[in-house]
Amino acid sequence: MFTPIGSAEATITIFLDGRPIPARAGETIAACLMRAAAPYFRTTPVTSSPRLPFCMIGHCFDCLIEIDGVGSRQACLSQVCDGMRVRTQEGPAAIVGGQTQ
């Protein structure tokens, strides 16, 4: 859906569900994952519908994703860091260290 204007200058790497994705220092996770053609960032907790970013400026909260073990973070407001581990969020956020199941 989106392609780089000029060269992507992706010199660092983040991981989406364990898969390495080249990233440009200073870009948001949302932009990085849109370039990587992620089919969705999360599914909704109500009907498990897939969502991608809608507004990109922090209003809609559709870009929620798990970042370094913390769920429900806004990908459009979070910048990439080298080695960052991002996970697609399926339904409600998981809490690392203490599920009942």
Partner: peptide, 17 residues
């Protein structure tokens, strides 16, 4: 997506649809 979202992806993401 909204038009603003696409503009943001252009400006801050250096991406084009």
């Amino acid at each position: 997506m909204t038009a603003g979202a696409v503009q943001t992806l252009i400006k801050a993401g250096r991406l084009q649809p």
